[in-house]
Amino acid sequence: MNRRPVNDRARTRTRTRRRWRERGLAFTLLLPSLLVFGVFVFYPFARTFWLGFFETDPFGGRRTFVGLDQYTDTLTSSSFRNSLWVTLKFTLLTVPTGLALGLGLAILAHQKLRGMGFYRTVFSSTVATSVAVASLMFISLLSPSVGLINQAIRWFGGEPIFFLQSPGWALVAISAVTVWQNLGIIFIVTSAGLQSLPDDLYESARLDGASAWSRFVDITVPLLSPTLLFGFVVLTITSFQTFGQVDLLTNGGPLEATNLIVFSIFETAFRDFNPGSAAAQAVVLFFIVLVLTAVQFKILERRVFYGR
C-alpha cells in the first residue's frame, strides 16, 4: 500500500538530481563566456561609470572624488560638444550616402545577366578592407602630391586641394573613406533583402504597365524598408564608433574638425592622461548607442513578429 509514495519520492529525488546535474552542466558550459564577459565587459562597464566620478590631477596623477562635477564639466565643455557635433555631421554624411549607393549597386546587380557573379564579387569586395587598408588606399587618391585626384586637378591646370589638411574638406574626406569601406557590407545586406522579395509581385506590376521607377518606389522601397531601417540604425551605431580613419588620416584635426567622439575619448585618456574625463565621455557614448540599439531591437522584434 505505501509502496507508491516511496517510489514517487525516489522518482522526484532522481529528477531533482538530474535537474541539478543539468544546471551544473549549464553553468560549466557557460563559464568561459561568462568569465570573459565578466572581466572584459561588465566589470569595465561599471568601472567606467565609477572612473567618471574622479578627477585626475594632470601633474601628480592623483585621483580625487568629485561626484557628478566631471560629468557636467565634460558635457558642457566646448571640445566635447564639438566632438558630438562632428560625429553627428559624420553620421549625416556617411549613413544616407552609403545606404543609397549600396542599394543602388544592389538594384543594379539584381538581374539575371551573364557574368553577374563577377560584378557581385566586385561590389562586395570592400567588405574585405580593414580601416587601415581603406584609409591608406584613399591616400592614393587624396594626397596633395601623389594623390590621383590632385594629379588630375594639376593636369587640368588647377590648384591641388589639401583634402586632409583643410578644415572644410577633412571630414568629407574621412566620410568618403567610410562610405567606400561600408559599401561592400551594405551591398551584401540589401542584395539579400532584394532576393527575399517575391518575384511574382514584380511580374504582375510589369503586366499592369508599371514603370521601372514606380516599381522601385511602390514595391521595392516599402518591402525593403525593414532592411533599410535596420541598415540605417546599424550604420549609425558604427559611425558613432569610428576611430581608425581619424587616427590614420587626420589625427582629429585640423582644428578638431574631425575629432569624432571615440577619437576624443582615446586622446583624453591616453595622450592627455585624463582617464576620468575620458570615462565620462564614454558614458555619454554608451547612452547614445543604447538608445540606437534599443531602436534596432525594436525593429528586429517587429520583423520577427511579422516575418513568416
Binding site: R23, L25, S33, L34, V41, P44, I237, A282, F286
Partner: peptide, 30 residues
Amino acid sequence: LEFKGRNLLFVAFLATLMVPAEVTIVANYD
C-alpha cells in the same frame, strides 16, 4: 537545457551587445 536562471543569463548575454568596446577601453586598458 532548462534550468532556473536561464532567462537572466540570456539577458546578460544580450546586454553585452549594448556595450560597444569603445566605451570600456579606458577601464579595460587598466
